[in-house]
Design a protein around this nucleic acid. Sequence first.
RNA 1: GCGCCCAUAGCUCAGCUGGAUAGAGCAGCCGCCUUCUAAGCGGCAGGUCGCAGGUUCGACCCCUGCUGGGCGCGCCA
Length: 550
Amino acid sequence: MTPAELKNAVRAAVAASVDNGELAVAVPDEVGVERPKVKDHGDYATNIALQLAKPAGLPPRRVAELLATRLRESDGIDSVEIAGPGFLNIRLSGDALGQVAKQVLIAGASYGTNDRFAGESVNLEFVSANPTGPIHIGGVRWAAVGDALARLLQASGAKVTREYYFNDHGGQIDRFARSLLAAARKEPSPEDGYGGAYVDEIAQRVTEQVPDVLEQHDPQEVFRERGVALMFEEIKASLHDFGVDFDVYFHENALHESGAVERAVARLRALGHIYEKDGAVWLRTTEFGDDKDRVVIKSDGDPAYISGDLAYYLDKRERGFDRVVIMLGADHHGYIGRMMAMCAAFGDTPGVNLEILIGQLVNLVRDGEPLKMSKRAGTVITLEDLVEAIGVDAARYALARSSADSQLDIDLDAWSRQTSDNPVWYVQYAATRAASVLRNAGDLGFTVDHDADLSLLTHPRENDLLLALAEFPAVVATAAELREPHRVARYLEEKVAKSAQRFWDDCQVLPKGDAPAEPTTAPRLLLWKATRTVLENGLGMLGVTAPERM
RNA sequence: GCGCCCAUAGCUCAGCUGGAUAGAGCAGCCGCCUUCUAAGCGGCAGGUCGCAGGUUCGACCCCUGCUGGGCGCGCCA
């Protein structure tokens, strides 16, 4: 019996009591069932009686008694106790819990998927770093978290498009081009230009592609075009090596060249949210909660930066996305007000059609001191610096295991150590132990038998592990719904890997030496297979590998 | 001045959106390898959940005000 099935049973008990006239309440759509912190409180607990007591006009314990009586008659429930103010503590029968392992095997790679976002089309935009340098550490957090979120939403039934906004229109590109030109001429970088060894590298490569570039009549334009292209290819390659690939790379230039900006402004004008002042064109965002109105077309006739955002949002909606999600760094949180106002100005619902997630800053720490210098990028710490220090798996896991709402320090020494103070190793170690049991079983001629007698899984360690595996689909759904992939990482560490390690220690699976198989051999093997499946699926959602051996 | 995020064990962080005795990992101390990976497991110790009020049967969680830290408030992009 899974938690979802148990919820249905509890809800059915409520419905039955209502039908019978014992409870005068509306049957809730969803009832909560949780794992109690204290083991004595059973396998699962629900506070539904406390919640229904007030509307029913009955004491909580009286409601609890009514529900307990009915629940005790349900299949798969061993006992129901009323505790404290009116909690229902539920214990499952051994076989009902054991069936979870079998269900994991049957579902296989799809175990953990759910239909929370079925039928929804979601556009996730993240990283979107400017092609003026290697991808910096701020963008890396979203590379890991955003990609994990994409996987979680997909696992929850959504149709997800990963999108990267290629900011190739504004003045920072000109500064980059001037920096490349200066480097090629062996001159110092301009005051407002870009520094770092990579500028010299890119300038060098452009010069190799176009040997006479400095003799051309507009060399800066050559450096701009080719330098940006090279930089962008490099960014794509680093992200690919990091396990992150985008479905759409969208060019800001396209919005300006196609007339999309003008169309977006015209649309807003028709809706009555545009006015002119001081020779510029303004969007009345204050009408929708922003703290000041925003210039859309500058007095010199050039579109302001936000006009690209207007057109880009409209374009995404016209491409059919129900939800447009944008993930930004903490230094961009000031955009939320104007973006949400813009969304409302188009007649959409902020928070539903447009969602903006803010990730706080990440520091790389070595010897207790924040890293300040990068080999290639000067004072900007890059994706390469991180991966070089601790590897892709540790990097992705370290970034994905903490809430994006909090600033994060990544201790490079701890995460590069191949010991137990490195959380990703702990989870991967559990996964390799599962693999090794299955491998050794195969060598001994045992196969995983789907018809194994799961009622023999009565050891407390087995019980705990089964309960942990049963939680997975709900963890995935919650993580997707709250946009918090770190819940999956914590679950894998604290619930699955922990329970699996304890199971390993206390429950020998394979017979020793030449001894014949024990009755528990087959069900335990099946439990290991289910555990391996959950660890693989869970790590997979974070973009981390589950090795066969370490 | 205004706004966003954060504050929980010595350190790094969870806490399932109001429930039972606040949880992990590391660091510290004590145990466990005569067969599936000891990169592990068990135990001990460690807390005024930043401070002060409020809301209610019940608050780490919600509200208000402080304190401290990070980041922002352009006709830049």
